[in-house]
Design a protein around this nucleic acid. Structure first.
Lengths: 341, 341
DNA sequence: TTGAAAGCGCTACCAA
DNA sequence: TTGGTAGCGCTTTCAA
């Protein structure tokens, strides 16, 4: 064990309460005693024991609110597992996590969910953002007027007073995919990029990163971007069409959902051996595709972390005012093949 | 907060001590009261609070010993960071970690270090193993006679009573590399495998995994395996020689150390653009090579985890008798390019 | 400005 | 076989 408050108190000839107050700058302590205490503490290398602290603080009930959009997609299920794990951990520390699940992606509904959570008394909020001024203003007013810290995860909204963003670096992951694609194609070939929604910022960024890095590989010809609205049947049709249009197609980059549709099309057209397929997210379905060789490379975006981190960060912030170290907490970009899944 | 021991005690009309004893099967409790208590507990969904537990147990001073071989290699430095992190975490829980650093890889020295740590009173041991019957017997006698649990990490020794092994799945990582190499070579080309020591089990396994997966890609011609004894200058010479011998060489698989020697040779021979290079370990040096394009793909083996996990596992085992869930705790096989480092 | 004391949930020891 | 009690390190309240 390290040095304890009690030991410092004894040496300084004061009570533990006094030491506690000075160590946490809670005021109400004579500057001179404070100075003496701080000296002793630093000399002895005092570090507060988080376990004792946690136990004492189980009395304060902390309420944290979470809002998850598109909550029933396979990817979000992974994120939600992270949230649940964090809830359990925080439960032991006497904090409670309230979660609102939204089916769609919608600023208005998000704001309504925020209001509901605030009404229930949450002292901090983490949410998947969606661009829009209403939401932006709501976040800012919470942060400033109500003193309720907000963290965005999975999707960000810039120009707000949010504490930080926990999620993928979409642009960078796009670059990574392009690099892998160029490896797989030995530097040349036609690549078909299939996105989810043209308006989705994360999808855009993935594409932009991919396109930018493709420029470094002149042999790679990037075909026109197509959206499949995250639907497998559109993805199927679009892939079929691309295969007919470009018989020498050698790569497909699936930016969002629709992976199974693409796989099916490649199988039906008997073109898998000729086409390298890179896609996103370690969902059970995609893992299966990877293991069966329908997908060559999967990119994982730390789904679990995205759900796990925000509640813990908010808890720490509420308890000790500790802000996250960075404004952008990017999750790892995982490259998975069938061999290292 | 969940249900507490105290609440259960009140409901059952007994003392907390009694509840504690029944919950942990420490005996000395009337079977009937025990039954009643267990019923109440399960009905209320009692889950012991780990924080309270941890705090109470800070009184028991637990001593854990760690032995690290080849402790000054860049890779092991990463492992040691994990050990240090774990030490700090355990320090808060009242446990202490004693570490012995060995420069070389040597069974005799390892056994001597074990003896020193036992003399100092460690109640559990984690060590990097090296094959040999002396060490095997020592581990078994510790586990059986002295009741001191042992975990191996980074390198394993089979046929022992060790609790588990934490480390890489070398064979699988070799397969992963072969798959990536075949991607990079578009399925055909000559590949030069350069290992560290022919006798090193991990190196052997990596090679075997690589070779096995190469068989699935008939276009890939695996050249004879060469050892460079983890030395850059040998690696340099061997690479130079291979480049002369096989002017159409298209891939090099660096199984252990010597990465910088290989990079230098490729630069001096101006052959980098023609040769794909896959190597191991996210050391600072290698990261640099990756970022500068001297290495195409790096494989990370969860070095930090290898150091971080064993002390924590031993602590849990000593405290609650909880054995690790599996005998082989394989760390993640990380695929890193310059874009997702 | 300071101190004393109670309490967070759990464990351990001793006495009954 | 049981209960009582003290204590782990820290926070917080109340009284001085």
């Amino acid at each position: 064990m390290g040095v304890t408050l009690k030991q410092i108190a004894e040496i300084a000839g004061v009570s533990r309460g006094t030491v506690d107050r000075t160590m946490h700058g809670r005021g109400r302590v004579n500057p001179e005693t404070a100075k003496r205490i701080l000296e002793i503490a630093s000399e002895l290398g005092y570090r507060p024991n988080p376990v004792g602290r946690a136990l004492a603080l189980t009395r304060k009930t902390i309420l944290i609110g979470i809002i998850v959009q598109s909550s029933s997609t396979p990817f979000m299920k992974l994120v939600i597992e992270g949230i649940q794990k964090a809830s359990e951990e925080l439960h032991d520390l006497g904090a409670e996590v309230l979660t609102e699940f939204l089916e769609s992606v919608d600023a208005k509904q998000t704001i309504e969910a925020m209001d509901r959570l605030i009404d229930k008394g949450v002292q901090a909020l983490a949410l998947t953002a969606v661009d829009g001024n209403d939401l932006r203003e709501r976040i800012n007013s919470l942060a400033e007027d109500n003193n309720i810290p907000v963290i965005t995860f999975n999707s960000d909204i810039l120009g707000t007073k949010r504490l930080c963003y926990v999620g993928q670096d979409s642009f960078r992951s796009g670059e990574t995919c392009a690099y892998l694609m160029s490896l797989a194609l030995r530097g040349s070939g036609k690549v078909f990029p299939l996105t989810g929604h043209l308006t989705n910022v994360a999808h855009q960024q993935r594409y932009l990163g991919f396109a930018k890095e493709c420029e470094a590989h002149p042999g790679i010809e990037l075909l026109p971007l197509q959206p499949c609205f995250d639907k497998d049947h559109y993805a199927y049709e679009l892939t079929m069409h691309a295969l007919r249009e470009y018989p020498d197609l050698s790569g497909i980059f699936v930016i969002a959902n629709g992976q199974s549709g693409v796989c099916q099309a490649l199988m039906d057209a008997k073109k898998k051996s000729q086409v390298s397929l890179i896609a996103y997210d370690l969902t059970p379905q995609n893992r299966q595709h990877l293991l069966e060789g329908h997908i060559d490379i999967l990119i994982g975006q730390g789904a679990f972390q995205q759900g796990h981190q925000p509640p813990l960060l908010l808890y720490n912030y509420l308890l000790s005012g500790a802000k996250p170290e960075q404004e952008f907490l990017y999750t790892d970009i995982l490259i998975k093949t069938k061999y290292n899944l």
